Simulated assay, not measured.
Amino acid sequence: MTNLTIASQVGILPLSQPLDDVYSGLIASVHKKTTQSTYKQGIKHFCYYLLTGEVVKGIKVNLSEYQIKWVISDYLKLDAKTANAYLGSYRTAMIEAGYSSNSINVKIASVKALVRYAFDFEQCSFLLDKVKAVKAKVYRDTKGTTPDNINAMLSLPDTLTVKGKRDYAILRLLWDNGLRRSEVSNLNIEDFNPSNRTLRIMSKGKIDPEYVYLSNKTIEAVEAWLSVRYQPSNSSLFISLDNASNGHPLSDKSVYRLVKKYSSEIPSGKVLSPHQIRHSSITALLEATNGNVRLAQKFSRHSNLNTLMIYDDNRVALQQEAVNILSSLA
Rank of each mutant, 00 (worst) to 15 (best):
L4Y: 10
T5Q: 09
I6K: 08
A7I: 09
Q9R: 08
V10P: 04
Q17W: 12
L19I: 14
L19S: 13
L26F: 09
S29Y: 10
V30Y: 10
H31E: 11
K32W: 11
T35G: 09
S37V: 13
T38V: 10
G42P: 15
H45P: 09
E54D: 13
K57S: 05
I59S: 06
S64D: 09
E65T: 12
W70N: 15
K77L: 12
K81F: 12
N84D: 14
Y86K: 09
G88N: 14
G88D: 13
E96T: 15
E96N: 14
Y99Q: 13
S100A: 15
K107P: 06
A109I: 01
A113M: 05
L114C: 02
R116F: 14
A118Y: 03
F119M: 08
D120M: 12
F121K: 07
Q123E: 12
L127I: 08
V131N: 05
K132P: 03
A133V: 12
K143E: 15
T145A: 07
I150Y: 02
L154S: 01
P157R: 05
D158K: 05
L160R: 05
G164H: 02
R172D: 01
L174I: 09
G178T: 03
R180W: 11
E183H: 06
L187K: 01
L187T: 03
N188E: 04
R200N: 02
S203Y: 03
K204A: 03
G205A: 08
V212M: 00
K217A: 06
S227C: 03
Q231R: 13
P232R: 02
S233H: 13
L237D: 01
A244W: 12
A244P: 05
H248G: 00
H248E: 11
L250Q: 00
D252H: 08
L272M: 15
H275F: 05
I277V: 09
S280H: 03
L285I: 11
L286C: 01
A288V: 05
V293Y: 01
R294G: 13
A296L: 04
K298P: 01
S300Y: 10
N304C: 06
N306R: 11
N306C: 08
T307G: 03
E321T: 15
A322F: 00
A322E: 14
N324E: 15
